[in-house]
Design a protein around this nucleic acid. Structure first.
Lengths: 239, 239
DNA sequence: CCAAAAGGTGCCAAATCCTGACACCATTGA
DNA sequence: TCAATGGTGTCAGGATTTGGCACCTTTTGG
């Protein structure tokens, strides 16, 4: 049994039994008393709150509030969680929104600083409407998460975006547009962009966009996209 | 410098420089070429996508999409995130719900197995209405996260719950009820319980409950709480 | 076509770190 | 006071990690 497994086992035993003595735990995981004490020290250093009572009838007790999880999330997953929580907040909030914010803040702090900057700036481009589904979702295509980086780069670098668009009739056209905002009208997701060829704003359903590609070196000025009533910015990250 | 610090440093260097050769990295972190190769292998196993180009001008490149974050979340924070994402799903979903689910699944897997069971069973007690705020939030009290464990224990062990309740007029009474469900009507949160003293169901606003305490040893049978139209179970975790 | 630069693998001895044993201290309750 | 319990220091021996070496494959420049 290696270090990690052993410390895992210790946490499990403490959770199950409520309290236990070091001698018991040592016997259970098959290690010496000294090693157990070292493991307990390591677990405490890792954030577990383990109360200890010396004397007869004493022992160790794991504070149930301090059980923690360390998961490795990709940037895209963090982004998805951010959007979910921000959407809930934009819809009026839930009783535990603050806790969710706190969790996200921790996740965010663990990202590299430049990535945080990117995420914040990208979130500023997001707008959301009412959080109740308005359309039938049966014919909905999937929004491929792999497409996201191209959009992110286009928005952050203010590059024009080139893609193929399949409209409601199934006709496929090539577009070259200036991305202005992303609009969430659950469960759909639109790119709001200035289309120079048509000299006007256009909405593009994200699940109908394919092969997006930003134009390297190109740039454009920002315009004020006209939003209908009831559409709000998704709001910044909690700080 | 230990293994962890060194692998952290490697990720940082790769992120900063864009690309680097193994010889460079080895010199930078003060380890041998062989050790660097072993570390790179470990990082790949841990989920980092590191592209390698052999030959002149080649080197290692860290896929920016695979940059990961490892945050330590408490169980309460995980719970809050779960509720947010589940609420969004119950409201019709967002384009990135699947990614958010994937992230949560990872977080969940990192919890102790028995805690996962508890969370799943507790989530089954949750119901949600329309996700648009109906009441004025200005007079809303705070729902203290520290109160959660008492509720969780009461629900999971089917123990009666004792608490103080301050009603709309500010009158404080003591209650002893049988908790049946938790109801989310954003941004409020209600305990739906059978009140034996009144021989009927009662809704209690969570922000008006204080000093909750479950009755050890006590138990009761489950009843079918009558829900209004439009109220749905929050739904199980993604599997 | 060759050489140099780069990543990748297998092997083994040396260095490092972890473990267990022991002695000892502090605190608590009977 | 004594026994049970957590906590710390030290040290030898064993397990693990590290570094060095030989060798392979791929790619690029001359």
């Amino acid at each position: 049994m290696n270090v990690h497994q052993r410390q895992d086992a210790i946490v499990r035993l403490l959770r199950r039994n409520g309290t236990a003595t070091i001698a018991d735990l040592a016997k259970e995981v098959g290690a010496s008393r000294r090693t157990l004490l070292r493991d307990i020290g390591a677990l405490r250093e890792a954030g577990f709150v383990i109360h200890a009572e010396p004397g007869r009838g004493g022992g160790l007790r794991l504070d149930p509030q301090s059980v923690q999880t360390t998961a490795r999330l990709s940037v895209a997953e963090v982004f998805a969680l951010l959007i979910s929580v921000a959407a809930v907040r934009a819809a009026g909030g839930l009783p535990f929104s603050r806790l969710a914010d706190a969790g996200l803040a921790k996740i965010e702090k663990a990202l590299p600083p430049d990535k945080i900057q990117d995420l914040r700036r990208f979130l500023e481009c997001l707008y959301i409407g009412e959080l109740s589904p308005r359309v039938d979702t049966s014919d909905m295509g999937v929004m491929d998460p792999c497409l996201l980086p191209a959009f992110e780069t286009a928005f952050l670098g203010r590059h024009p975006l080139r893609f193929q668009y399949r409209d409601a009739k199934g006709i496929v056209t090539k577009r070259l547009v200036e991305p202005q905002a992303m609009l969430i009208l659950p469960p759909l997701w639109y790119l709001v962009a200035w289309d120079p060829a048509r000299d006007d704003f256009r909405h593009f359903r994200m699940d109908r966009i394919s092969e997006p590609e930003y134009v390297e070196g190109g740039t454009f000025r920002r315009r004020n996209a006209p939003f209908k009533k009831g559409i709000r910015p998704l709001g910044p990250l909690p700080s």
